[in-house]
Design a protein around this nucleic acid. Sequence first.
DNA 1: TTGATATATCTAGAATACTAGATATGTTTT
DNA 2: AAAACATATCTAGTATTCTAGATATATCAA
Lengths: 97, 97
Amino acid sequence: MEISKILANQTRVDILKWLKNPEDNFPPHQDIDHFNDGVCVGYIQDKAGLSQSTISTYLNAMQHVKLVIPTRHGKWTYYKRNEEVITNYLEGLQKEL
Amino acid sequence: MEISKILANQTRVDILKWLKNPEDNFPPHQDIDHFNDGVCVGYIQDKAGLSQSTISTYLNAMQHVKLVIPTRHGKWTYYKRNEEVITNYLEGLQKEL
DNA sequence: TTGATATATCTAGAATACTAGATATGTTTT
DNA sequence: AAAACATATCTAGTATTCTAGATATATCAA
């Protein structure tokens, strides 16, 4: 799915917004005391209130266009924003529109 | 339809882009020698290569969220960009994302 | 007023997005 | 190795978007 369609979904936009300030939007992780690699899927799912498979599908699509970066830590996959891609997209939109 | 979904369609984005420089993208109008009120539906349709009803539907949706401003001149309806709304939307996106 | 032209709206089928349940995979713990 | 847990993928039903043909409306020209 292309980036403009990914950002046409409110939940996916919300996820990106939440990931700007994980401390404000999610409880602290157990094994890791910082959000350097982002937030685990389960927390994002709880916050979004959608099913596990739906959130996983969303994150996969976002990762495909590099809006987010996944990092595996044991059982968990943490997702964080890819600021470069986000900024680049916004600049491109600014210019073309 | 909300604005982010409207901008998730390439043809609709193209239309907005074309309307930035009507002189470069459309032939001159017959009865009017400027593009002050924008471009007539027929020209936009020719350029986009989609059916008349589809383009009319697109323009109607875009007008609904005020991305474009229609002006009636006789038989023709001219559409032009609503720069204020476009700029405002981009600024909002910049801030929230 | 009749016919021609431009645009808008109605209707409907095809394509895509949305979403969840079931199942698979990978990791940790016992 | 088995059980438990987190995440990913598969499958499928529902909803929305896409698009065009048919029809309606509005304006102009004869």
